[in-house]
Design a protein around this nucleic acid. Structure first.
Length: 897
RNA sequence: GGAUGAUUAGCUCAGUUGGCUAGAGCGCUUCUCUUACAAAGAAGAUGUCACUGGUUCGAGUCCAGUAUCAUCCACCA
């Protein structure tokens, strides 16, 4: 017999087990012994940012994915889970820039592109491994031999090929467009990279000049330096007469030519009902300018300052220029009104700098252009079709609608970013020199490599980080395999499309939609069959956990304290798809207690039944006749458990699967069957216990891999194979050995009733009692068969009398349950003096408590009426006093509300 | 403004296609070191399932409306 420690100690075990798994090579499906035609099951890990440190959101994601992966591996699938990291262009560049400024006082421009990228590289080498190392701590069974990075050589190839293919298909184009420009990051932002903040703003109403006929309203007077039109509603009687006319005005020293145009989108009731049009600095205005062929005057430059040519405003920041304009308007007495309104400020999601809408040359992916290779459909149409035809399903289903809504309103995707860290755009320009300095693009070439010949310069911009991560399902599987055709082979053929994409709902549009479009474009194939969306992990007060707020629970601390299994289980149970979850340390602790329970269940069975071998195939093929009511009961329950767990996992109810498993393990298996085995020692007990325990380990393994593998490893009589590649249990084994169902619940109820009588009547522990049971003949037989259990399972029954009928015995406690009368004669069992003393003491405590309550109740009207009397008058009667105190407590509760 | 979700025990949350007395964990009360586990065991208390109607033999579950909260999208001159 081996000595197992009394307490499960994950810290000592987990790293060792993980190394053992890695050494086995079974994370890699190529090493699994499977039939040729085994189905594949593939998940790509949503790559965490290289700057990330493991947070609970990651653990939640890893726990769910590892559960799916381990389950399917045990079910005999060719199972692949691909790890990797994302270069997160803007985020990473920001971090390095901040670091540079802090440590050396330098900006990236001081260093220059090459030197700066070297700095990023240095930083990256340090941080990239951190998150991967931390992922291993959670027990994730990822195939590390296939690890990928969104910015490594292979992915670089894929990105270039994709860009060139799209360019050649005519869906990538270069165009000028108002973009959301972050003056701090010096980059454009996609619509969904903007955050809005409600703020108070000054809303100014003024005339451009003395000779302009009416006033306009704006929150941004400084941009009015670039106005080329004024829009009014065509129905607006006030302005009808001006429509079509052009005014030349002197606006604060700057000459403007303003055409009065009509547009039905202008709200007549807002401000003066007239809207100054600044095509270069507002999305809406840009669209009106396009419609009306207006001139475009850029006022604000990429540095967020007023451009040259605007008198003394030039070179000033927008905010400063605004002040100057207002001052000037006041001086000229043109400002009519100044009011405070609430509006939404657009902010860069990375650095919270207000964004400037600016016109700029950018690369776009057209989502509406129809293509031959997609059967004369556009990316948008294909991406909608895939979901509408349910080739891709969402869990939970409601996200299908959100995806479709978003997809239908999708505009062309701006893929160029003015940052240095990322995939450089494979576009090359030949520049024409004009008057020494000014340059214009003469020729554009888009290709995999720099074209031959002199004078070609590569586009300085890089690609949106979602461009590379959008290709993640196939770029990780070796696409492109060659640059000539799109035939699939190897991993790509075997594992694509993948089965599930499991990710957070917040990047449904950002990432999922792009993956669908890119996979359809590149392979004419969906990237995954199912999208499982998890919610966010919030702290115990329902707030977002973030590093900056410092309210996060560090999963690594938790793993160290309670073990990875406990953290995983806490993330799985009570977590439902698409819903946010709150988490607290207490919750994790409670699951640590469970892993410890599991450890001790095994410890007990191992110590007492180590001799009992498993039934081999021969034994199982015949019915085992010697089994008791309890045996049949537990085995039938277990059969149900196997069925329901399988169904739950299939239908993505991981929380419920875990809860049912836990309920069976703890309440049925440990608390009853194991206890029964201490008294009902039939020949097969050990075998049954070990069989069920072994299969329980198999079923628990996808949830809590470390403790189960560790128990498995230590089980005596097991062959030294890893639990992770064991087969998921089947019900046949159990159906074969057990015949028919048994109602054991009746016996359970009787036992509970006896225990109840003991506590209620305060019969001292260990004191033997006599029990009289009155019931019908049939039940009596059934009870007789289980006499040993009824006498021993923490009931301490010395004598059990079973009668078909009879009178109520004198001076005895009684309970009626399931048609059975249970009596326990009390004479001589309770020491009355002792009881009295005890009651007295309890009463003392109650009095003290009541006094405390009274103090609390002071000043409350309730006090005048009763409580003192109620509590203290009733003090002689313990029961009544208790009831009254409860009433007061409730009253106090209601006062709080 | 549009959409989606939430509202169940003191707290955090489960609850499948409507079905018996609505569950779990933590907390609370009482008892217990009893052949593994005090990180345990046993017993117990606590619910107007947000509200108002409707459908039904039957509603936490389905439908309509209301309230509160959250999130997303759009607008923001």
């Amino acid at each position: 017999m081996k000595d197992l420690p009394k307490i499960y100690n994950p810290q000592e075990i987990e790293d060792k087990i993980y190394k053992k798994w890695e050494k086995s090579g079974y994370f890699n499906p190529d090493n699994l012994e499977l039939p040729e035609d085994a189905k594949t099951y593939t998940i790509v890990l949503p790559p965490p940012n290289i700057t990330d440190k493991l947070h609970l959101g990651h653990v939640s994601m890893l726990a769910i994915e590892d559960l799916l992966i381990r389950y399917h591996r045990m079910k005999g699938f060719r199972t692949l889970w691909i790890p990797g990291t994302d270069h997160a262009a803007i985020a990473t560049q920001n971090v390095v820039e901040k670091k540079l400024l802090r440590e050396k006082g330098l900006t990236r421009h001081d260093l220059g592109r090459e030197k700066f990228l070297e700095e990023v590289q240095k930083f990256l080498e340090k941080t990239q491994k951190t998150i991967l190392r931390q992922i291993k701590k959670t027990g994730a069974s990822l195939d590390w031999s296939r690890e990928a990075f969104t910015l490594d050589q292979q992915r670089e190839k894929a990105v270039r090929k994709m860009f060139v293919d799209m360019y050649e298909a005519g869906i990538i184009y270069r165009g000028e467009r108002i973009v959301n420009w972050c003056p701090r990051c010096h980059s454009t932002l996609a619509d969904d990279e903007i955050e809005y903040k409600k703020q108070k703003a000054e809303f100014y109403t003024f005339k451009y000049s003395g000779d302009f006929p009416f006033a306009i309203s704006t929150t941004r007077p400084e941009t009015k330096l670039g106005d080329t039109a004024v829009a009014v509603n065509p129905k607006d009687k006030r302005y009808k007469k001006y429509i079509g006319r052009t005014f030349e005005v002197d606006f604060c020293g700057v000459k403007l030519k303003l055409k009065i145009i009509a547009d039905k989108n202008v709200d007549m009731d807002l401000g003066t009902g007239a809207l100054g049009i600044t095509p270069a600095h507002s999305m809406v205005d840009w669209q009106m300018a396009e419609k009306n062929n207006l001139d475009i005057v850029k006022v604000i430059g990429e540095d967020g300052k007023i451009r040259a040519g605007f008198k003394n405003y030039s070179g000033k920041t927008a905010a400063k220029a605004r002040g100057m304009v207002i001052k000037e308007l006041k001086k000229q007495d043109l400002l009519e009104k100044e009011e405070e309104i609430e509006n939404n400020l657009s902010l860069c999601y990375r650095c919270n700098t207000p964004i400037e809408p600016l016109p700029s040359k950018q690369w776009f992916v057209s989502v509406d252009k129809k293509m031959k290779r997609l059967g004369n459909k556009s990316l948008k149409e294909k991406a909608i079709e895939a979901i509408e035809k349910e080739r891709i399903k969402f869990v939970p289903e409601r996200f299908k609608k959100r995806y479709l809504d978003w997809m239908e309103n999708l505009r062309d995707w701006c893929v160029s970013r003015q940052i240095w860290f990322g995939h450089r755009i494979p576009a090359y320009y030949k520049l024409k020199t004009k008057s020494g300095k000014l340059k214009a693009v003469e020729k554009i070439y888009v290709g995999l490599e720099k074209p031959a010949g002199e004078g070609w310069i590569q586009d300085p911009d890089t690609l949106d980080t979602w461009f590379s991560s959008g290709m993640w399902t196939f770029s990780t599987l070796g696409w492109p395999q060659n640059f000539k055709d799109n035939k699939k082979s190897g991993d790509l053929k075997k594992f694509h499309p993948t089965q599930v994409l499991e990710t957070g709902y917040e990047i449904l549009t950002l990432w999922v939609s792009r993956m669908v479009m890119m996979s359809l474009f590149a392979l004419n194939e969906i990237p995954f069959e199912k999208v499982y969306l998890h919610g966010m992990v919030l702290d115990e007060h329902g707030k977002k956990m973030s590093k900056s707020k410092g309210n996060g629970i560090d999963p690594l601390d938790m793993i160290k304290k309670f073990g990875a299994d406990s953290v995983r289980l806490a993330m799985l149970i009570g977590n439902t798809p698409g819903n946010d979850m709150k988490i607290s340390e207490e919750k994790i602790e409670s699951f640590r207690n469970f892993t410890n329970k599991l450890w001790n269940i095994n410890r007990y069975i191992d110590q007492h039944y180590f001799k009992h071998a498993f039934p081999d195939k021969k034994d199982i093929s015949r019915k085992i006749t010697e089994n008791t009511k309890a045996d049949k009961w537990i085995i039938n329950k277990f059969i149900e458990l196997i069925k329901s767990t399988e169904k739950d996992i299939k239908e993505h109810r991981f929380s419920q699967a875990g809860e049912r498993l836990k309920d069976f393990t703890w309440n049925d298996f440990a608390d009853w069957y194991l206890e029964i085995s201490k008294f009902e020692t039939t020949t097969n007990k050990g075998m049954f216990l070990r069989m069920i325990l072994n299969d329980l380990m198999r079923m628990w393994h996808p949830f809590i891999p470390f403790v189960t593998e560790s128990i498995w490893e230590g089980r005596q009589g097991n062959k030294q194979e890893l639990l992770m590649i064991e087969k998921w249990p089947t019900i046949n084994t159990y159906e074969n050995i057990i015949d028919g169902k048994e109602n054991f619940d009746l016996i359970k109820e009787i036992i509970i009733a006896i225990r109840n009588i003991r506590t209620k009547n305060k019969i001292p522990a260990g004191k033997k009692i006599k029990v009289i049971v009155q019931t019908d003949k049939e039940t009596a037989t059934s009870i007789k068969e289980n006499e040993i259990l009824i006498k021993n399972l923490r009931t301490h029954v010395e004598k059990l009398e079973i009668a078909e009928s009879g009178k109520k015995p004198k001076n005895s406690a009684h309970q009626f349950v399931a048609g059975i009368n249970i009596y326990v004669p009390l004479t001589g069992l309770i020491d009355i003096e002792k009881e009295k003393a005890k009651n007295k003491k309890e009463l003392e405590n109650l009095k003290k408590y009541a006094n405390g309550l009274e103090r609390k109740l002071k000043n409350k009207s309730f006090l005048e009426k009763a409580p003192k009397e109620i509590v203290l008058q009733e003090k002689e009667n313990l029961k009544k006093a208790k009831v009254k105190i409860r009433e007061i407590e409730k009253y106090l509760e209601s006062l709080k509300k």
